[in-house]
Structures are given as structure tokens and as C-alpha cells.
Computed example of a mutant assay.
Amino acid sequence: MKLLLVFLAWCILFVLCWPLAVLALMAWPLLWLLSLPLRLVGITLGGVFALLTALVQLPARLLGWRPAAAVAR
């Protein structure tokens, strides 16, 4: 659905101002390449925070504590 809305917005932009729409179409791959390092940083930070959470909860888990979601199953 999101892709369809983006395509519809691009079509409207193409009708209203085609040079800007063509520029946006050409700039999209460049912006995607520039965002890749930021995505990698986000994935890395997510992993680091998951590791820190696991390390902080390790003593309690060794003593038998389980998260509420695991108890409800």
C-alpha cells in the first residue's frame, strides 16, 4: 500500500512538474546509497542494546525469573 501511495504521489508530481519528478527519480538511488551507512549504524546499535539488556538480565534469569510474556504462554 505504501508503494502504491508513493507511486501515486510521483505520478501527480510528474503531471504538475515533470522536471522535478524526473530529478526525484534520478536522485532516489543516490539517497538510498547514502542512507545505507545510517541503517548499518542503527542495526549495530540495536544489537549492542540487546546485548546490554541480556547482560543486565542474566543474573535474574539464572535465578529463574522469566518475562511476563513467557509466563502467559
Results as ranks from 00 to 15, higher is better:
L34M: 10
M26W: 11
L52I: 13
G42D: 02
F49V: 15
V48S: 09
V41Q: 03
W28M: 06
A50F: 13
L38G: 01
M26V: 12
L52C: 15
T44A: 15
L51N: 14
L31N: 00
L33S: 09
L31P: 00
L45H: 11
L36F: 10
W28S: 06
W28H: 04
P29M: 13
L52V: 14
L31I: 02
L25F: 14
T44R: 07
M26H: 10
G47F: 02
L51R: 15
T44K: 11
S35N: 03
R39T: 07
P29K: 13
A50V: 10
L51F: 11
G42K: 00
L23Q: 06
P37E: 08
P29F: 13
L45P: 02
A50S: 15
L31E: 00
G47P: 02
V41A: 05
L30I: 09
W32P: 00
A27K: 05
R39W: 07
L40I: 03
L40N: 02
A24K: 01
M26G: 13
V48R: 06
M26C: 14
A24V: 00
A50W: 14
L45Y: 11
V48Q: 09
L45D: 04
A24D: 02
L23S: 04
V41S: 03
L45T: 07
V41W: 08
L30V: 07
A24N: 06
V41R: 02
M26S: 13
L40C: 03
P37C: 07
L33D: 04
L34I: 12
G42P: 06
R39F: 06
W32S: 09
L30P: 06
L38R: 04
I43S: 05
L30F: 14
G46H: 00
G46L: 03
L36Y: 08
L40F: 05
P29E: 09
L25M: 13
L30K: 10
I43E: 01
F49D: 09
G42V: 01
G47R: 03
W32L: 12
V48D: 08
M26A: 15
T44P: 00
T44M: 13
R39D: 07
W28N: 02
S35M: 05
L31V: 01
L23W: 10
L36W: 11
A50T: 13
L30W: 13
V41T: 08
L33G: 06
L52T: 14
V41I: 11
P29N: 13
V41N: 01
A27E: 05
L23Y: 08
G42W: 01
F49W: 14
G47Q: 04
F49L: 12
L52N: 15
M26E: 11
L38C: 01
L25K: 08
L25Q: 09
A27R: 05
P29D: 11
S35F: 07
G46N: 07
L25I: 12
W28D: 01
P37G: 05
L34D: 03
P29R: 15
A50Y: 15
I43P: 01
A50H: 15
G47K: 04
V48F: 12
W32V: 10
L25Y: 10
V41Y: 05
V41E: 09
S35G: 03
L51M: 13
L33R: 12
I43Y: 01
V41L: 09
L33Y: 10
T44H: 10
A50L: 14
V41K: 01
G46C: 06
L36I: 08
I43W: 00
L45I: 11
F49P: 07
L31K: 02
T44Y: 08
G42C: 00
L34T: 08
